[in-house]
């Protein structure tokens, strides 16, 4: 046994522009050369209904595996191409016209309105991390993995309130 394919459950916790837990699913493949693990991953994070992030990536990686036993820790990293949508709620003051029956005419009022602004970006990024492989070299394996990622692009900072013209 030296190839594995499977699915994962997990998520990401972006630190910028806003800290949030964005859970989702993963598809992966690993080729095990005894000392090095080569991996391909597809991550789909932000699938929960309350997530502001919607994220997908495709990455390739290499990890050094410690030992050759059935429990194998590994560390390494790789590169990925990712696309992300980030929603922020923006408020703005809008002038609204309404008909006033008391004066039989139109009046204007200023009202604070809210809307969702979506910033969508894509590009490449890098990640480092590690994990533990259980039941290595068997027909069923389990991996627990944590990594730190940096994408080489920025997402818009949450603005809060903008002018009507800016909106």
């Amino acid at each position: 046994v030296n190839s594995y394919f499977g699915i994962g459950i997990g998520g990401m916790v972006p630190l910028a522009p806003e800290i949030e837990m964005a859970p989702g699913l993963n598809l992966f493949g690993i080729y095990d050369t005894q000392s090095i693990l080569f991996g391909i991953d597809c991550n789909l994070w932000g699938m929960s209904s309350d997530s502001r992030y919607s994220y997908a990536d495709f990455g390739i990686s290499a990890y050094y595996a410690f030992g050759r036993k059935f429990i194998a820790p590994y560390i390494g990293g790789g590169l990925s191409f990712s696309a992300v949508d980030y929603e922020t709620e923006v408020s703005y003051v809008a002038e609204r016209e309404y008909y006033d029956y008391d004066i039989q005419g139109y009046r204007t009022s200023e009202e604070t309105e809210y809307n969702t602004y979506v910033d969508d970006k894509s590009g490449i990024g890098a990640f480092i991390g590690g994990g533990v492989m259980l039941n290595r070299a068997s027909s069923i394996i389990l991996l627990a993995e944590v990594k730190y990622f940096v994408s080489f692009f920025k997402l818009a900072e949450p603005k809060g309130t903008v002018t009507y013209e800016q909106w």
Binding site: V1, N2, S3, Y4, F5, G6, I7, G8, I9, G10, G11, M12, V13, P14, L15, A16, P17, I19, N26, F28, I30, N43, W45, V84, K121, G125, F127, G129, G131, A137, S138, S139, I140, I141, L142, L143, A144, E145, V146, K147, Y148, F149, V150, S151, F152, F153, K154, L155
Partner: peptide
């Protein structure tokens, strides 16, 4: 700040 953070994952694989 660049878009960055942590990812965690529990994976189940079929080996052959």
């Amino acid at each position: 700040k660049l878009f960055q953070g942590f990812m965690f994952n529990l994976k189940l694989g079929y080996g052959f």
